[in-house]
Amino acid sequence: MKRTMIDFWVGLFIALGIVALLFLALKVSSQSSLPASSTYTVTANFENIGGLKVRAPVKSAGVVVGRVAAITLDPQRYVASVTMKLDDRYHFSRDTSAEILTAGLLGEQYVGLEPGADEKMLMNGDRITITSSAIVLEQLISRFLFSKADEGGNAHTEK
């Protein structure tokens, strides 16, 4: 095999390999983490985060506007402190409320933002004060069962 032919085929092989890598990078995968320069950070305290994970999406009106960056426990008040990185293009009022929702009945959990009416906007490092916790299915069921049992007990004593 002549030298030029070897060079040609090796060049084609390396080009093919790079095309395959580009295909994996551009068509198959996505950069889920936004570049650090175009985000701002807000935190929110929740009584219970349920199954929320780091890198879970933050959505407003169903549109992904950011990601959960960190989840820690506040050791003074024993509430979960969730740090979120939001896209710089979207700004929310100071009285925005945050709640932890579930996609579908058994889907992944995400943070939903409901904008308020305040004129001032959330800035980098601000805290969202109005929050509601994740719904934990077991607690709901046990509450329902206890209320049923109470009803049954009351009905019994009235007789």
Binding site: L24, A25, K27, V28, S29, S30, Q31, S32, S33
Partner: peptide
């Protein structure tokens, strides 16, 4: 098919680790 694939596969975590 493509959009679910794209949203679930992360470039840094999955593709780069495979390489």
């Amino acid at each position: 098919f493509w959009s679910q694939m794209q949203s679930a596969v992360d470039f840094r975590l999955d593709v780069v680790n495979g390489v």
